[in-house]
Design a protein around this nucleic acid. Structure first.
Lengths: 293, 293
DNA sequence: GAGTGGTCTAGACCACCCG
DNA sequence: GGGTGGTCTAGACCACTCG
C-alpha cells in the first residue's frame, strides 16, 4: 500500500529519481507519515492512464483532483446541505496534501456556490434553505420595494409520460415517467407567474400535491432535503410572448398581454439535468433583473 | 521616507516590538531592501486613518490594496486595453510585497474580467476587441445556428439635453449634455433589435454618426479605443412589451407583436455609470440566453 | 484559549511561450 | 534558454467564533 487510500496523481515535484527530503522538493506529508520515498508519489501513480512520458498528456493539478474528491463526497451525501465539512487542516491530512492545496480546491467550490466559508466557524455545504440562496434562481423583482418570495398555489400535480421535447431537454427517453407540476405564484396577492415544471419520475418518486402544499419556502429546498437532489446551476432562455387564454385567466389579465417567457433547465452534480421549468411572467410591476459582468 | 513610494498598510506581521528577521515574521522585502526595521511597516503606517489600537477598525488585506493600485493604473491608462502589464515578479518588487500577494490581487482582477492571464506570455488588460468579449454583453442568440454579431444601421445621432429619467439613471444633472443614438441591428439581414443609447456628452465629445458608421465591430470597442472609456459591468432590467408603431415599422413587424424590452446601465471603473441603453428585441427566432449559477 | 478560515511570505518546480 | 504564469509546500501570524 502506498499513498494511503486515495489515488492522486501528483504531476508536480521532481522527476529525477529518488531525492533526499532536504534538497529539491521538500518532504511531502505522505513521505514523512508513511515513510514512503518521495519518488513513489511522483510521475503518474494511478487514476489517469498516462504513458510515462516527461509531460503527462492529461495534466490535472492536484487541487483539481482534491476538488473532484470533495465534490464526490458532497454528491454522495457524506456531507449534507447545511452541514459543516471537515476543516482544511483535516482534509489536508486525509488527502496527504498541504493545506494550501485543499484551500485552493475549496476556493473554487465556494466560487461555484457548492460550499460556503465562514471565518472562524468552518466551511458549510450550501443549501437552498437560506435567504441568500432564495434569489439566486428567482430573478423577477418588484419595480418598487424590496424583493420578497411569492406565494404558490398549485393547479395540478400528476405523473405523466415525458413528451418528446421535454425528454430531449432532460436527457430522458420519450415516454419516461415524469412528474408534472403547474402552479401560479402571487406577489402581495397579485398573480404574477404561471409555471409548469417537469421532474424525472425516478428521482422524485413520492412527490405529491400534499407535500408541495404543506411545504413552505422554495421548492429547491424541498427537493434538496426530501429527495437528496440539489440544483447547482441552470440555463435559461427568455422570450416575449402574448398571453393565451389559459395564462390570461390564471393571471387575471387580458388576452394578448405581453408576457416574459422563460424556459429553464436546471442541473445537479455532474451537469445532470433534473428539472425543466417553463414560466410566464407578468412584467407590468416586476422585471427580470440581470447583472452582466 | 519609509516603505518606499507606496502607502500600504500592512495589518499582518508581528505587533510585538522589533523582531529579529530569523524569528517570528520572516524579513519582508521592504525590510531587506531599504533596511527599515520590520516594526516600521507594521501597525498602521498611513493611508487609512486608524487609531493605533490592537485591531485596525478598517481592516483591508494587503492584496486588496495592491488590487486597488493596479486598478488605478488600469483606469489612468498607464496600461491600455490589449497591452501587457508588468509581470507578477516585477509588480511584487514595485509594491514591496511577495509574488503570492500580487498573484491574489491579479486573480481577483481576472475573475472580474479586468485583465486576462495567459500562461507563458503574461497578463493582459482586457479589451472589447475580442471574440471572447463580444458576447459578454450581447445575450441575444439565435434559436438555431451559431451566435454571430449583428450589423448596425444608425437611424439618428444627436446631441441633446438629458431628460430627467435618463439623468437620474446616469448620475447626471437633468439638462446635462448627452449624446443620443438610435440604431437598428440586423441578423442575417433580418431587423431584430431597435436600440436607443444615451452617453455623457462630456466623455464622448466628438462622437459622430460618421465615426460610428465607419467603425466595424462592437461599439464598446470604439468607446474603449477612441474615448478611453471601458465598460466593466452592466445591470439590466428586462420586460415584455408590445411593439408600438415606431418599433413595428423599424422591425418590419405587426403592431402589438410582443418584444423583449431591456434597460441597461453600463459602468466603467469606480462603478461610474457611462451608458444607458434601451433595447427592444424581437424574439421570434432569437432568445435571451442566461446562465444562473 | 483553542479551533477555524484568511493573509502573507518564501522557495521550488512545472507547463507554456517565444526568440 | 530565459521569462511568464501555474502549482505545491511549509510556516507564521491575523481575524473571527465559541465555549
Amino acid at each position: 500500500m502506498n499513498s494511503a487510500s486515495s489515488n492522486l496523481t501528483n504531476n508536480a515535484t521532481a522527476a529525477s529519481g529518488a531525492v533526499s527530503p532536504t534538497a529539491g522538493a521538500p518532504a511531502t506529508p505522505a513521505a514523512t507519515a508513511a515513510s514512503t520515498p518521495v519518488a513513489s508519489v511522483n510521475t503518474t501513480t494511478a487514476a489517469v492512464s498516462a504513458p510515462a512520458a516527461t509531460a503527462s498528456p492529461t495534466f490535472s493539478p492536484l487541487y483539481q483532483q482534491i476538488k473532484a474528491l470533495i465534490t464526490q463526497s458532497l454528491q454522495s451525501g457524506e456531507w449534507k446541505p447545511g452541514e459543516l465539512i471537515p476543516s482544511e487542516v483535516e482534509l489536508a491530512g486525509r488527502f496527504k496534501v498541504s493545506q494550501g492545496t485543499v484551500r485552493k480546491a475549496i476556493d473554487e467550490l465556494a466560487a461555484e456556490n457548492l460550499v460556503m466559508r465562514r471565518q472562524g466557524k468552518g466551511t458549510f455545504v450550501s443549501t437552498h434553505h437560506e435567504a441568500r440562496a432564495h434569489f439566486r434562481f428567482l430573478r423577477l423583482v418588484p419595480d418598487e420595494g424590496v424583493p420578497h418570495y411569492p406565494e404558490s398555489k398549485f393547479i395540478e400535480v400528476k405523473r405523466v409520460r415525458a413528451p418528446a421535447d421535454v425528454a430531449r431537454l432532460m436527457d430522458l427517453k420519450s415516454g419516461d415517467a415524469v412528474i408534472f407540476i403547474k402552479r401560479v405564484q402571487y406577489f402581495d396577492g397579485v398573480p404574477t407567474i404561471v409555471e409548469e415544471l417537469w421532474l424525472p419520475g425516478l428521482i422524485f418518486k413520492g412527490l405529491t400535491a400534499e407535500r408541495l402544499v404543506e411545504y413552505k419556502g422554495p421548492m429547491y429546498g424541498l427537493f434538496e432535503t426530501e429527495f437528496g437532489t440539489r440544483m447547482i446551476r441552470a440555463s435559461e432562455q427568455i422570450r416575449a410572448v402574448c398571453a393565451d387564454a389559459g395564462a390570461a385567466q390564471l393571471l387575471n389579465i387580458d388576452l394578448g398581454t405581453p408576457l416574459l417567457s422563460s424556459e429553464r433547465v436546471s442541473f445537479t452534480y455532474g451537469d445532470k439535468p433534473v428539472e425543466l421549468r417553463r414560466g410566464l411572467y407578468l412584467t407590468s410591476r416586476h422585471h427580470y433583473q440581470n447583472e452582466l459582468s
